[in-house]
Amino acid sequence: LEARLEQAAMLKRVVDAIKDLVQDCNFDCNDSGIALQAMDNSHVALVSMMLKSESFSPFRCDRNIALGINLTSLTKVLRAAQGDDILTLKAEDAPDVVNLTFESPESDRLSEYDIKLMDIDQEHLGIPDTEYAATITLPSSEFSRITRDLSALSESVAIECTKEGVKFTCTGDIGNGSVSLRQHTNVENDAKSVDISLTEPVALTFSLKYLVNFCKAAGLSDRVRLCLSNEVPLLVEYGLSNNSYLRFYLAPKIGD
């Protein structure tokens, strides 16, 4: 494997966004790119990352390999990279280590690290292609704000989407709260728009602790997409350039 990223910031942000949710992960490398799928310890949430080969330049992967990496270790090494450093990942066939180099675009500084790999026996889940009943695309900062504000009151949030809009409601010991958003097009800045596409109304309840955690990915994208259907996991997607993505799935709370 040899994969060169123009900006180390992208990998730094991705790892930062998932490291509190999942610890030891296989980075599955093949000629289409680098993928990661992992459940959190309690098996409530699933992280699915895809960094397409087009996000790297150049990208070369001659044989499929799984790089078992401890994300705490990776975070320690990535801390040594500046956001605008050029990052290159390298691994040999049947590797013991993954090699990372960080090149400063402005100076002749080159740093190089090896991280020991782990043998991780990770089960892959089959994520079905789902036609979601409701898809909401909103500013990622708005979604972060909603989850943060409501998590101060309650452990869970009900998300209801109707043709009127989307409503986030919580009930807690001190009282209750809600935030409603309507479809809204911001003509000056499309990134601030709220788009709602609905085929049937949905109402689901989710743990806010996980949603707050997902919002650590907000720095990766101005926009976030929420996909909901009754009685299936919520999909929270942060799109990256070149069709790469970071997706989180969250199992709904079960009603009485």
Partner: peptide, 14 residues
């Protein structure tokens, strides 16, 4: 976790 479904219930093992 009480009242919380598991993701594996929805997405079968490959």
């Amino acid at each position: 976790i009480e009242g919380q479904g598991s993701i594996a219930t929805f997405f079968g093992k490959k």
